[in-house]
Simulated scan of single mutants.
Amino acid sequence: MAAATVARPFSRGFIALSLSLAALAGAHAQTMVSISGSTVNMREAPTLDSAVLWELQRGYPLEVTGRRGSWLAVKDFEGDTGWVARSMTGKAPHHIVKGPTLNLRSAPSTSSAVVAQMARGELLKTLEKRRDWVRVERASGETGWVSRRLVWGF
């Protein structure tokens, strides 16, 4: 007679710990949005009467750091903070050039041809992500690959 194998269920403690860790990771996950209006004001406080700090263009990526009513507290790639109307944001992924210059390459490799060079703060539409590389599109329509560590966004 063959011995029966019994599947051992996970302990309740293990399941509880796993769920707690998953919730903790979700709480610290970076929430990103991008500007969906043609231009949007980043304000000092979550009201239309507050001072305008910056005018942001369509696609500009922002990290959400808080929420208050119909407003989002946000931070940009330079660490500047402010508030934007939630209705003026979306989830279309974009990146911003972080360094002084960045090479736009024909393929996701440092040995591939340089198609163009871009300056700090240039806004790039995200087309595809592959490991440590992002395929992007410039405002001019030019496309290529950039190293993920040299851009900020999602």
Rank of each mutant, 00 (worst) to 15 (best):
residue 150 L to Y: 13
residue 50 S to D: 07
residue 71 W to R: 03
residue 17 L to Y: 06
residue 63 E to K: 15
residue 128 E to A: 03
residue 129 K to F: 00
residue 98 K to E: 08
residue 126 T to C: 11
residue 35 I to C: 02
residue 98 K to Y: 01
residue 49 D to E: 14
residue 55 E to N: 09
residue 89 T to G: 07
residue 69 G to L: 10
residue 55 E to H: 03
residue 69 G to T: 03
residue 86 R to F: 11
residue 129 K to S: 04
residue 154 F to Q: 14
residue 103 N to K: 12
residue 46 P to G: 06
residue 117 Q to V: 11
residue 44 E to Y: 04
residue 71 W to C: 05
residue 131 R to P: 00
residue 60 Y to T: 10
residue 51 A to K: 14
residue 92 A to P: 00
residue 73 A to E: 13
residue 148 R to W: 13
residue 12 R to W: 09
residue 70 S to A: 14
residue 53 L to P: 00
residue 51 A to Y: 00
residue 126 T to W: 07
residue 63 E to R: 15
residue 37 G to R: 04
residue 139 A to V: 10
residue 114 V to I: 15
residue 28 H to A: 11
residue 52 V to T: 15
residue 29 A to Q: 12
residue 2 A to F: 10
residue 58 R to E: 15
residue 120 R to C: 03
residue 64 V to D: 05
residue 115 V to I: 15
residue 9 P to L: 08
residue 53 L to Q: 09
residue 46 P to A: 11
residue 72 L to A: 09
residue 12 R to G: 12
residue 153 G to K: 07
residue 108 P to K: 08
residue 75 K to I: 13
residue 90 G to K: 12
residue 33 V to E: 04
residue 14 F to H: 14
residue 25 A to R: 10
residue 34 S to T: 13
residue 140 S to K: 01
residue 146 V to F: 06
residue 65 T to R: 15
residue 140 S to F: 05
residue 72 L to T: 05
residue 78 E to R: 15
residue 70 S to E: 13
residue 22 A to P: 00
residue 126 T to L: 15
residue 45 A to T: 01
residue 2 A to H: 12
residue 86 R to I: 08
residue 85 A to W: 13
